[in-house]
Nucleic acid binder design. Sequence first.
RNA 1: GGUGGGGUUCCCGAGUGGUCAAAGGGAACAGACUGUAAAUCUGUCGGCAACGCCUUCGGAGGUUCAAAUCCUCCCCCCACCA
Length: 432
Amino acid sequence: MQMKNVFEILKERGFIENTTHKSELYEYLNNNKAVCYIGFDPTAFSLHVGSLVPIMSLAHMQKTGHKPIALIGGGTGLVGDPSGKTEMRKILSAETIGDNIKGIKAQLSKFIDFDGNMAILLNNADWLGKLGYIEFLRDIGKNFSVNRMLKAESYRQRLDSEGGLSFIEFNYMLLQAYDFFELFKKYNCKIQMGGSDQWGNIVAGIDLIRRKEGGEAFGITFPLITTSAGEKMGKTAKGAVWLDPEKTSPYEYYQFWVNTDDRDVNRFLMLFTFLPTREIESISYIKDSELNVVKSILAFEATSLVHGEIEAIKAYNASVNMFGLRDLSCDILPSSAVHKGVLKIKDESVPVFKIEVDLISEGIPVFKLFYITGLSKSGGEARRLIKQGGAYLNGQRITSFDYIVSKQDFIDGEVMIKAGKKRFCKIVLKNS
RNA sequence: GGUGGGGUUCCCGAGUGGUCAAAGGGAACAGACUGUAAAUCUGUCGGCAACGCCUUCGGAGGUUCAAAUCCUCCCCCCACCA
């Protein structure tokens, strides 16, 4: 295994914020096939962009010959992690969590190969559910000092806040520590990774392993990825950017990445694609409007990882169609499949809305059209849009909101409407 | 359990009988400028086929010509005390 140490890869790609026992960890990764784990909260059916850093780091681990464990918090999800939260979470029902686990599993499988013995997917409900309260307190609880727990950053924030910290949440640290301990015993898992808000929980696990087993274990935390605009990664005004195509279509997903802030492009290429470090470094000279090409490759790669290459190509083509083609020089990030694949598929993933023929024969005011296609949330919003000059019909700016759209406006059975510069929708006639 | 303070439109937060669809800020949306970037400036920002009508201020009742504002009961949150 004369591969580059995964620690170096993660480090140079910007995945590492902090680690415990840095040199021992490095050595360990050099000389062993390590087992490492990250926990995922089953709070939603789909993961979102915010979970990509942990997912990618597990994928890097696997690529370098280590064995990742993705631990889904089916048990801890019943409790709720207070770390990094300003308010108490809603407590989820067991069925919801069960459904969510299925969805998350499918998404993780796109990044990590769970076949064979290359990686493991576990649910901590399998062991947490069996714990007896008294036993747990005696075996595990006695190893924790409340004094120390109260000093943990994740609790302190909540203790100072108005909402306070409930007892159920206070226990979260013990459960996560116990997870690590369990995985250490069963799978010889010695590394836990997680967001920087997980530091306290990870260290608690390492301590527990040392106290109970005299074992050595390590922790790695990721930096909190924020955009240069200072916002949390993956949160847009419309909500989170999901990995599930039903919640965030591949086209929207692609657009999310294309709209990356200039200052974030290189950092994101490192974190969210597998393109070689050297190639990414070699394009750092690209600036200003030239960066748009790089952004489209970033978007293509990121979309391709989650939705597959075909969907990525469709999204790419749809974007080219809307915003124009850019010169894709093969010198830029040559490893990207975008250089090979784009021309093969003509299909586009433009949002399409099918409209009843009757509605059109009768004629329909344009502003209604914006409303029923979802480009505007209400009729009023559509009117405003038109009044402000942000609405287009077949490329022409619409000047009056009660213009009646009829068959004459359809060219080859379709009409393109556009709201602002970026949102658009193709309307086709149903059963025609 | 007691006492006090609160719950306002996406978020924060003014408003304590009519002039309130409700100040201000943030977010968002549109326009200008641009590069599908950032910053900036301008406008918009409950719903409705719309100079009018309808629905909102924790919930349910009530007083009044008139209620986010006053009264009663209830729910939830916070602080201090127990």
